[in-house]
Design a binder for these strands. Structure first.
Lengths: 227, 227
DNA sequence: ATTTATTTTAATCAAACGATTAAATAAATT
DNA sequence: AATTTATTTAATCGTTTGATTAAAATAAAT
């Protein structure tokens, strides 16, 4: 029991192999990938506590025992999904905010549009991350170095330069990032509530968010010069 | 078994008594109030699925059976907590945004400051509402008429007046509300993540949010005139 | 003082759930 | 072809968990 598979997939916390190696090795049609995709879907939608391993197995079209054979436990499978999700979610930012070719303003536009597109493809991710990280923040977040991604970025440098050159007013970078990310992400997090409040249909609401790709950069620039 | 208590506390969905009547009747020290407060704490912190009725009973300092005696089931207790939470959370807005004495700008300031204070007292509420409502939005939200509270408010009228009088540019009210609420609420929802990203301590982070009471109105006004 | 009603508890049930086992089948290796 | 290794399944184990029961303790009423 738990032979070679065990070494590859379950020792990721201890062995030298990175999660990314495992990702590359697995084909989309392979059983472990099927299970992981199913787990992703179910966890994202319901969260850890409300997800049943039987539901994940059914979603993957396999037996419950197989899930435990590959991933040993619900929790280990969850951690794997969480790492992949965080990596995807913050990795895609990294490309945009570290592009040396684009200006500060261009990055703001690309960031807003790119992120809204990303969340449109997987709208459950923001609420999933926020609510699951609440339980054990440091344990889950230490696996993906988000802080470094954000603070040592070209984007951050360009922000500081713009302040020094007097192009934008001097202001707290954390406030700026909170506002920027909040404007992008909040409509997705608050969607169920906001739909009821606004009385909009799914399509109307999505159209509104689509508009925000253009609007958020305008708003953010106005905010930056309002102090 | 399930005698007079039953009629009062468990038939709230069917009988003529409102939830508010029950609230008034119960003293803070009474057993049912102790249970409800404990349920509130646990549900707010962990969400429905991760909360155990045994934990709630322990938090309340009573036996598990007593919880079911008073509230009949975990789910009924949860619905009660959710209604109270929504009522409190959106009721407190109502006072501010329907005050006929204050101007549009004053309401923005009071709304921001008042809401940040409210969430400071109960910081788990925003994420609790967002994540729990995702599962059955209409069922939970139909119990509190939020849409009416927002759209038929003095605040909404004053917004429309300001647009007509050319004081602010013509813009989508839904966008405006999403931005406004998002700026207030998102730092609390994203707190675990934002703390790690920023590297700030609890106190530093709270101080930052405190600043936002003054900053958000400034930002919002800048945004409103940026189209 | 006795009955009646209410409040509280310990013990336990039944279903749900995560995990395991052992056995069967398929694939790969020698 | 024989043997080992990998994949898949049915059956089931042990806990957890929501809910119930019956009875004890307390309070209220007659």
């Amino acid at each position: 029991m738990f032979k070679s598979k065990d070494k590859i997939y379950l020792s990721c916390n201890f062995c030298k192999r990175s999660v990314m190696d495992n990702l590359k090795n697995a084909t989309d049609s392979s059983t472990e990938e099927k299970i992981k995709n199913a787990a992703r879907t179910v966890f994202h939608k319901k969260g850890f506590a409300a997800s049943r391993t039987r539901d994940i197995a059914e979603e993957a079209g396999i037996n419950l025992a197989l899930l435990n054979y590959y991933f040993r436990s619900k929790e280990k499978l969850f951690v794997l999904v969480m790492i992949e999700t965080l990596t995807e979610f913050f990795g895609s930012v990294s490309v945009i905010i570290n592009n040396p070719e684009t200006s500060f303003e261009e990055k703001i536009e690309q960031f807003a549009a790119g992120y809204i597109d990303l969340i449109f493809r997987e709208p459950d991710i923001p609420l999933f991350i926020m609510s699951e990280i609440r339980n054990n923040p440091e344990q889950l977040l230490q696996k993906v170095d988000i802080r470094n991604t954000v603070f040592n970025s070209v984007f951050t440098c360009q922000f500081n330069e713009a302040v020094q050159q007097g192009k934008i007013k001097d202001q707290n970078f954390i406030h700026f990032m909170m506002n920027f990310i909040g404007l992008i992400v909040f409509p997705f997090i608050g969607k169920p509530l906001l739909k009821v409040i606004s009385g909009l249909t799914e399509e109307q609401f999505n159209a509104l968010i689509e508009e925000r790709k253009k609007l958020i950069p305008v708003w953010i620039k106005a905010m930056m010069n309002s102090h």
